[in-house]
Amino acid sequence: MAQVSMTVNGKAASGDVEGRTLLSSFLRDTLELTGTHVGCDTSQCGACVVHVNGEAVKACTMLAAEAAGAEVTTIEAMANADGSLSTIQQAFQDHHGLQCGFCTPGMVMSAAALLKDNPTPTETEIREYLEGNICRCTGYHNIVKAIMAASGQDVSSIAAE
């Protein structure tokens, strides 16, 4: 066991980890931030996407020890300071971008990473960016619509209902 320290959602966080402890385990089990979901645990599904130093990564495929000193942001920090939903989260609600909600934390974190680099993505760019985020409920159309809406674009022409 070794001590690892990082900044999670703006606060100093530390704990004892084994070498094999994944960042996803550290967040969920040590810090009890269970908003980061583990779906496949094989870096396919994207439910565990968090931001490490501002970049989207799959927390199930990164060792906690490698995040030492990093700035980590999880879904728990995505709401506004007053507790209201962020623009992206509100758009997911408004446009029915979730059903069971399991993939949603990863979807929101990926959407935030996309909009940071590309504030007004096309529908195609959104779909390509979500390649590594799997949803088994929605069929993706409303997720894409929500992200377009969150970027301030007109979504009336988006295909699906």
């Binding site: 990564v57 799959k58 495929t61 990926s110 590594g132």
Partner: peptide
């Protein structure tokens, strides 16, 4: 290669 999160690592 892979997907955006994979490409970041």
């Amino acid at each position: 290669i892979g997907d955006p999160a994979v490409r970041n690592r």
